[in-house]
Design a protein around this nucleic acid. Structure first.
Lengths: 206, 206
DNA sequence: CGTTAATCTGGAACAAGTTTCAAGGATGGT
DNA sequence: ACCATCCTTGAAACTTGTTCCAGATTAACG
């Protein structure tokens, strides 16, 4: 839970390096908040984080890597928040819906940041595979935590969670591209959680 | 069905313009087939289609617009093919699954083209809203056609189709980014169709 | 300390998407 | 045929992500 994300094969960072990394991620989030994906310009990030452009690229080998890492960072915060204040619904499906709707509310407060992160995430290609994977795993963990179910999840439950995740990402994309309303997002989330209910109820015990 | 996609507000194109547009779309598809999103370079497309760069931009205001239009074009071909050879399964859910798996097989034959189109589609922002919308509607129509259900679809069915579509797009992204296998894609599609079965069975009459 | 390897910096250079513009062509109305 | 208008061309310029490099700084170690 508190293990956070220190890749096993990465050399440990010094304190100053840790601080640089943090400045970069914070600068990125701030620029993204202001103007979304387009406003996150590598030169600006570098200047804003007070590092050289080359250094920025040493830490994050592309804009997509950078934004996906930012997404991971933000998701970790969400995960912690959820631990402090877990969903209140009793049923797993309802708990998942509550959690995702809460996350969505947070995103609506910072639509530009949301846009930047999600665009980068979906635009990522194989070269960012590891980073995308990390975000993906974290998302799965958040949803699994939300169910409140104990013990190792069954394969059926994992399939169901995948479908929920797909819907979550995809409906977000629709919302960000202005193609569907916040209402629609809410409906989609509720629909998929309802659909999945029977599956998860049958597929795992408490 | 044969109405194709002539936006109501667009002035009709002359024959030569129609031909230019076609050359551009064909050149784009060909370049995409060869090397995916990255290989579709605007200067190359222009040269390959034998138009000036400025003209290319007059027809398609950005690379994303261009690729989303290409996607629309390819989907129209698929739609026609499906009309000639509709799915053979009797049940709506199975018919949808069969259709999507067939589409997926087609994509696997040209993974670079698939990558280019899907990346563009998910990367699109509001400025390409209309084009993305057209693709989205066409996809919905293809899935609705696949069900074989007659009459106007109920809202429940439409919700279900949305979930299917979300899963379809999202699992494709996972496949393209190397994050999930073709097996996984098949499973996801089958899962969501099964989940949605009860919904569509209860939600519409033949 | 002094040395050595790794890291960081500032800045130039390159690549590809996008914009702009002047000059030449096509279209349509009269 | 003539004019006005819109379209196309070719080429240069601009933007932003990305790469490269030489020299300054820092970290690790004896």
């Amino acid at each position: 839970m508190t293990a956070h994300s220190t890749p096993p094969s990465a050399p440990p960072l010094t304190e100053r390096q840790e601080a640089r990394r943090r400045r970069i991620l914070d600068a990125t989030a701030e620029l993204a908040r202001r103007g979304g994906f387009g406003a996150v310009q590598m030169r600006e990030v570098a200047e804003s984080a007070d590092v050289a452009l080359g250094t920025l690229y040493r830490y994050f080998p592309s804009k997509v890597h950078l934004l996906v890492a930012t997404m991971h960072d933000q998701l970790e915060r969400l995960h912690e928040t959820l631990h402090r204040r877990p969903p209140e619904e009793p049923e797993p499906a309802a708990r998942v819906a509550e959690t995702l709707l809460r996350a969505f509310r947070a995103l609506r407060r910072e639509p530009n940041l949301a846009e930047a992160m999600v665009r980068a995430f979906t635009f990522a290609d194989r070269s960012a595979g590891a980073e995308v994977d990390a975000v993906s795993r974290l998302t799965t963990a958040i949803i699994l935590d939300a169910t409140g179910l104990e013990g190792p999840p069954t394969p059926e439950l994992l399939s169901a969670v995948r479908v929920v995740e797909h819907t979550w990402h995809s409906t977000l994309i629709g919302w960000l591209s202005g193609r569907s309303s916040a209402e629609q997002v809410r409906t989609d989330i509720e629909t998929v959680c309802r659909l999945v209910e029977s599956e998860s109820a049958g597929g795992a015990r408490r």
